[in-house]
Design a protein around this nucleic acid. Structure first.
Lengths: 151, 151
DNA sequence: CAAGATTGACCAATCAATCTTT
DNA sequence: AAAGATTGATTGGTCAATCTTG
């Protein structure tokens, strides 16, 4: 029989409801400001960091924990919205490269203040500096590299 | 300008990736065992705790942070799978009551060991007892009752 | 009118199969 | 065959509108 302590369950429910609340807060603020959802921000940010060389979709996949088919359609939508540009890779005939457009850069800049404000009120203002440091340190240990299900 | 410290961002990314990894681990283990997804467990558990009086859908809604239309279709699927039973409320002509079936109780009992094992390896085994206590305590502060967007 | 719940139409995520290139 | 990526079909989630009862 597994010996799950009451504390472990409390930590799990706290983790899931805490992150869920914060996520809902952020998504709600973005929606209220008529901005795209958080997932788009992550893509824009990763692509912006890779500028000007661009990024391969499979690199996005590993960094953002998305499936390949999910990436494919997400990038299609973002390209249709004019936020990124998809070009065939010169080195690898199978692949593509994702570039940021000026509109994409602008969109990320407009999303960031809303995003940051939500983090401020939902996270930063609710915890002490020590608690924030602890939270960062502890949660870092949960994303171990060798999760059995991520082979 | 918002003064988001580097630590707050680290706490946020840790929170979201940590809970995401753990969630994927649990869902993956459940799927590998041909069991329903975690959301069904939560419903089964809430309904089981309310036995034998049953539970109203809108009570589930507040406890599990789901929307009304989402609840409606989720309960339809679970009733179709034979895990719960939906009956009209005798007190309130508008509403229904959710009851657990024997199959539902059995299903929750089969899901729990898989769920618990995943929490053990993904959470309990990765942190010290002190860290688990801290995590539970800190995350509890994030689910404040008066989130502006949950009015 | 407000509260509990459902439905139709639409969008996004998922699975399996497929295609091209390495 | 394996890696990168896409597509068709299905399922699940979301929005707005609706229905019934309090």
């Amino acid at each position: 029989m597994t010996s799950l302590t009451r504390n472990t369950l409390a930590a799990w429910t706290g983790l899931i409801t805490g992150s869920g609340h914060l996520l809902s807060l952020i998504e709600g603020q973005l929606k209220d400001a008529d901005l795209p959802q958080l997932g788009w921000y992550d893509v824009l940010w990763e692509v912006e960091k890779s500028s000007p060389s661009g990024l391969r979709p499979f690199e996005l996949q590993s960094r953002l924990l998305l499936t390949q088919y999910n990436i494919s359609r997400l990038l299609d939508r973002m390209a249709a919205a004019g936020l990124i540009r998809l070009a065939p890779s010169p080195d690898d005939g199978r692949g593509k490269i994702v570039f940021l457009t000026a509109e994409g850069r602008d969109m990320r800049c407009r999303m960031w203040p809303v995003y940051a404000q939500a983090l401020q009120t939902g996270l930063h203002d609710r915890l002490s500096a020590d608690e924030i440091t602890s939270l960062a340190q502890i949660t870092r240990k949960l994303r171990a590299e060798d999760h059995p299900h991520f082979e």
